[in-house]
Design a protein around this nucleic acid. Structure first.
Length: 474
RNA sequence: GGUCCCAUCGUCUAGCGGCUAGGACACCGGCCUCUCACGUCGGUAACACGGGUUCGAAUCCCGUUGGGACCA
């Protein structure tokens, strides 16, 4: 059996989006599962729309997702000589021919055909008789067309969609080189896939309609077509193809929003593929379990909530040392000083780990640990930092100041003693302390907060808050 | 418009002739609780429609409808 070789072949006309990433992932997983090779090829023949920035963004996204390729990146613009050579080869054998029809003429014919309710396909004006190879025209612009079969049908045997039959009469003679000599998309793809010995083409099903033509080109180039697998597209919430107006679609945007690459892969793989009831897969599990048979046929809607949940799963199960490492760039980008004490940072993150779904959320939630410049939420302060609680707050400050061990159990007993002395419910004092220490009414457990903050910072904040309360007038 | 693809809870999906149609996200309740979460227990919710085939169809076939892709 020939080795499995897959490829991901994006056009560098924009960033790597969610849909492209999933296609890349499927190709990657399939190759790894079969211990084959995964190739990256940049399809940059559209020079108008291709940009170096896009190339860079795609490579960076691939690296971030750790979709490592064994060969490439190859660039089609560096391979133009090969396409030219293959075109000449077809020309010499009468399998392709020059066409001098002008765009205006073709457009007029198409309009006429439409008017008469005929199919607007190329009428074969320049198509030479079978087996003849006409000389190239001089002095007039011409494109090159592929001489496609006029009868019979072309069957795509698709690993996902099954057997799809196309009537050859529906397929007109494809232009393989424009009048300026540049080869066209469908042609370059076939030449490259032959040259790179790609065994399995896994791509979006928007390419399914191109496939019969590509198969005909394989035959014309005396090559055996590879296996095809057309995976369904990813849709937005309105069932339209996923695009910018559905929110972020760039893979790197999710990185910047504090998502984990593992979460991106895990979410995307489940959009169109499944393995029983399992939701969470490690990379190794995916490689082991991935198969084209389990890829679904129908398009799937991108669901940001579930994606967030998957990310949360990875965040909460991340070992603390790694989580600290992950979060540091986000601390920096928010302008907070990076704590020198790594163990302390890990403790702080540990109190927040199950309360945040992204690294960005995590930094936001950790801000009261990272800086002493906290501002008290005025509504919260008004509600909980009341004259009524002031005596208990002072008592708490005294108790905490005298504490030897500043661990949660010790702090809890300090609270208990104060509460008992004043006959107060725990909620009142806990909330008062929470607002004083964090600025808000929402935070990790108050004993943990105090313990992590440490005696000095705790007392400072409590005293500052207590000082801001007007004593009750009696 | 033509060609092609698709169709199970709101969403992702399991199901591959016999299931009280399962799981996950989201949503709604209970428990836990110093707040918010986590966790946990429970709940609402689907086989698009119509014909066949079959003892029996979510499952096979054909239509209809609805979505999508491609070609322009």
């Amino acid at each position: 059996m020939s080795p499995v070789r897959t490829r991901f072949a994006p056009s560098p006309t924009g960033y790597l989006h969610i849909g492209g990433a999933r296609t890349a992932l499927f190709n990657y997983l399939f190759a790894r599962h079969h211990r084959g090779q995964f190739i990256l090829r940049i399809e940059d023949t559209d020079r108008e729309r291709s940009t170096p920035e896009a190339i860079h963004a795609i490579l960076e996204a691939m690296r971030w997702l750790r979709l490592d390729y064994d060969e490439g990146p190859f660039f089609q613009t560096a391979r133009l000589a090969l396409y030219r050579e293959r075109i000449d080869w077809l020309l010499r054998r009468g399998k392709a021919y020059p066409c001098v029809c002008t765009p205006e003429q073709l457009e007029a014919k198409r309009q006429a055909a439409l008017k008469e309710k005929r199919k607007p396909i190329y009428d074969g004006t320049c198509r030479p008789p079978e087996g003849t190879a006409p000389a190239l025209p001089h002095g007039v612009p011409y494109s090159i067309r592929f001489r496609s079969p006029r009868e019979g049908s072309t069957v795509v045997n698709d690993a996902v969609k099954g057997e799809v039959v196309f009537d050859n009469r529906e397929l007109d003679d494809l232009i393989i080189a424009r009048s300026d000599g540049t080869p066209t998309y469908n042609f370059c793809v076939v030449v490259d896939d032959i040259d790179m010995r790609v065994s399995h083409i896994i791509r979006g099903d928007d390419h399914l309609a191109n496939t019969p033509r590509q198969i005909q080109l394989y035959h014309a180039l005396e090559s055996t077509p590879p296996e095809f697998a057309h995976v369904p597209l990813i849709l937005g919430i309105d069932k339209a193809r996923l695009s910018k107006r559905h929110g972020a679609t760039s893979v790197l945007a999710y990185r910047d929003m504090g998502y984990f690459p593992e979460a991106v892969l895990n979410y995307l793989v489940r959009l169109g593929w499944s393995h029983g009831d399992q939701e969470i897969f490690s990379r190794d599990e995916l490689i082991e379990k991935f198969s084209l048979e389990s890829v679904g046929k129908s398009a799937g809607v991108f669901n940001p909530e579930k994606f967030l949940w998957v990310n949360f799963h990875y965040l909460k199960s991340r070992p603390l040392p790694q989580l600290a490492e992950d979060v540091i760039p986000f601390i920096e980008s928010k302008g907070f000083p990076v704590p020198r004490d790594r163990a302390w940072l890990e403790r702080a993150l540990g109190t927040l780990q199950e309360r945040c779904k992204t690294l960005v959320e995590l930094v936001d939630a950790a801000s009261f640990y990272l800086t002493d410049e906290i501002t008290l939420d005025s509504k919260a302060a008004k509600k909980f930092l009341t004259p009524k609680i002031l005596p208990a707050l002072h008592a708490l400050i005294d108790k905490l100041a005298r504490l030897e061990a500043f661990d949660p159990p010790a702090i809890e007993s300090a609270f208990a003693e104060v509460l008992q002395a004043f006959g107060l419910p725990i909620a009142s004092l806990a909330q008062a302390a929470r607002v004083a220490l964090t600025g808000t009414t929402v935070s990790p457990g108050i004993y943990d907060v105090i313990s992590v903050l440490g005696k000095e910072r705790t007392l400072m904040r409590l005293r500052r808050a207590a000082g801001g309360i007007a004593p009750a007038v009696s």
